[in-house]
């Protein structure tokens, strides 16, 4: 560590420290309204699936509170992506086999506005956006 510090110039240190501070700050306080309008609690709002930049499906999160998962197939640029939603959470279950890296599958479940599932090869994105009916939960 001390050797490393020796190699760093003053400007290196300023650069690194400010990068860390600014980004830690944005991680702690994400600008939710820039992404989705407002931060919200789980179970509210809509699951928004975009295909090639256009909103293809908008599903109320409340509709995912059910016994069996809601499966949605979306025909993207290179193939069919299968999206799974249940109990207020959504994930990309299966990327098309043509997708070499399948980064969107690895993203896993999202349940609140902010994180998004992005499939660049298939041009599909999934986000949760704030909605009107502010519920804490649904009894079913």
């Amino acid at each position: 560590m001390q050797r490393l510090l020796k190699y760093l110039t003053l400007y290196d240190k300023i650069l690194i420290v400010s990068l860390i501070i600014v980004n830690v700050f944005f991680i702690l306080f994400p600008l939710y309204h820039v992404y989705t309008g407002n931060q919200d609690e789980v179970g509210k709002g809509y699951i928004v699936i975009r295909n090639n930049g256009k909103v293809e499906k908008k599903i109320p999160v409340a509709r995912t509170f059910r016994e069996d998962p809601l499966l949605i197939e979306v025909e993207g640029r290179i193939g069919t992506s299968i999206i799974e939603a249940i109990n207020g959470e959504v994930r990309l279950k299966e990327a098309p086999p043509e997708d070499p890296q399948k980064i969107c599958e690895k993203t896993g479940w999202i349940s609140r506005p902010g994180p998004s599932i992005i499939c660049v090869p298939n041009q599909i994105s999934i986000t949760i956006e704030a909605g009107e009916d502010g519920l804490d939960g649904v009894s079913w």
């Binding site: 009916d133 804490d136 649904v138």
Partner: peptide, 9 residues
């Protein structure tokens, strides 16, 4: 300090 809001399916 608000109440829990629960919807019914």
């Amino acid at each position: 300090n608000s109440l829990w809001q629960i919807g019914v399916r």
